[in-house]
Nucleic acid binder design. Sequence first.
RNA 1: GCGCCCGUAGCUCAAUUGGAUAGAGCGCCAGACUACGGAUCUGGAGGUUGGGGGUUCGACUCCCUCCGGGCGCGCCA
Length: 576
Amino acid sequence: MDGKRRTDRAMRVEDFRGEAAEVIARHAELDPEAVDRMLTMPPKPDMGDFAFPCFTLAKKLRKAPPVIAKEIAEKASADLDLLCGAQAAGGYVNLSVDRTRFADAVLREAASAGEAYGTCADGTGQTIAIDYSSPNIAKPFHVGHLRSTIIGGALVRIFEALGYEVVGINHVGDWGTQFGRQIVGLKRFGKPEDADDLMSLNRLYVQFHEAAESDRELVEEAREWFRRQEAGDQVALALWRRIRDTSLDYFKRIYDRLGVRFDSYTGESFFNDKMDVVIEEVRAKGLAEVSDGALIIDLSEEGIDTPALLEKADGTTLYLTRDVAAARYRHDTYGCDRIVYVVASGQSLHFKQLFTVLKRLGHPWAKDCVHVNFGLVQGMSTRKGNVIYLEELLDEARERALAYMQGEIEKRLELEDEETVAEAVGIAAIFFADLSKQRIKDYRFDWDLAISFDGDTGPYLMSAHARIAGILRNCGLDPDPDADVSPLVEPEAHRLVSLVARYPGVLREAGRLYEPSVLANYLLELARGLHASYTVLRVKGEETGKAQARLLLFTAVKQVLRSGLTILGIRPLERM
RNA sequence: GCGCCCGUAGCUCAAUUGGAUAGAGCGCCAGACUACGGAUCUGGAGGUUGGGGGUUCGACUCCCUCCGGGCGCGCCA
């Protein structure tokens, strides 16, 4: 066996799986790539690191799967290098890695990549535009917009980690009759300087709606203001611009608090002068027909019963028209290979129509438009009432985090800034409650479940990170990046090494499925693996070789937690 | 009425996309510490995966059907 040992070069983590696939392929007479696709993981770690199911071979070989597994396992056993065992178990061949060499490869790779561990270059040269958050301004930022912001922000960072150029777009709703209402509210009930303060604007907006209940004239007046806006009236536009700026400033402060950034705020108003082209083109290509006075495209051939409505009977355009213009603009401006829309499931039909219309218009990139949909959130209310605004929600999260920290935690740590920690914990609670579930599902938000430091929560993950930080800080050793890993013999250590090794694949999977929960659930597993091991794998007081090996492992775990939490939008603190 | 989506432990969610005995957390019960952060860990109880058919060596996963829930269905966005 010595002749084919790969000690002449550094082993890479993929080499272990590669060898598993090759060995099986050789003895099962299959293509290594096909075998690689079939490899899974055994249900329990002590059964091995890779599993090959023999069931599909049964028909071909006319033998029972357990017999085949036994034959392959026997032949493979004599033919291993990086792997150190092949056992048949039922219809499976289970393969185990040489744990020392595996730990060496994994931890060496994590150490040399540092903060970049887990990232890859899959997306090099490709651009993805992600449309997310996209609230209606001149209305308060309702929690309904929160989910898009949280999921979209996570997807931006996931795709950046995968090497893509990402353009974050906030398609703000900054045009529409709500501005007319806002202007009337301001004119009738407010002072001119109220236009510069969002709280005043909110108050006036509510006041408008209350008054409009009994006075229909107000509604007509609002329509008139919006008509003037659309007609290019300078007075109306100046008011609109002022209200818009006030709102956008406020939104940007909230985004700052949430840690999300946008590359573009080109919203609805931006496309006002870009929709005539769309209508003309649709007409010129003979795609459209007039129905009840409106311009529609029949999509029944594509199995969509509801036609796409592009122009109302009164000649004005619609949501869909604007999205067609926006998609073309984005494609032309950013040269993006993909446009991702992070919008609630309720708009599935709209996006089906949009993508089909783009296809009909002859855009080959229509097939690369994706609606990343998500379900409803229930129960996200504050103590003050049902209709909550995002800022109130964040404040309440911070208060609850602070109360939890002061009430439940017996051993207090000296923190320079408790408020900062509470703010980070509150946001972690809200973000993680959202990101740990498959996005398509509706879910019920529960303060007590989310804010707790025990269980599957954001704060729990933060505490795992802070705990490792504590170990590294207090162990009294300078980490040695070249430490020998052979003392890492415990099953707990191997479990952690395997988890660290999985991280790059987890990011890829999260990106492939547009599913941050893949990452969130993996991080929980990692944190649990850490907590289950840290009494066994002590660093302080151990002899140097063992201590350094464990330190190397913990450093890698900390890096992964840090990276993963940051991608989810949670701040990994050193102390909390 | 039609279309799309969701039903997994008391509760909140997983299950490597068709693989092994369906796993975690919360809650409940029983244990473990002078602790590199107990904000923890180790056990236990708890399941006809909404019901019924089908496909397959194998189904929580795919197909059909029924039940329950959510969302949507041309001049809002």
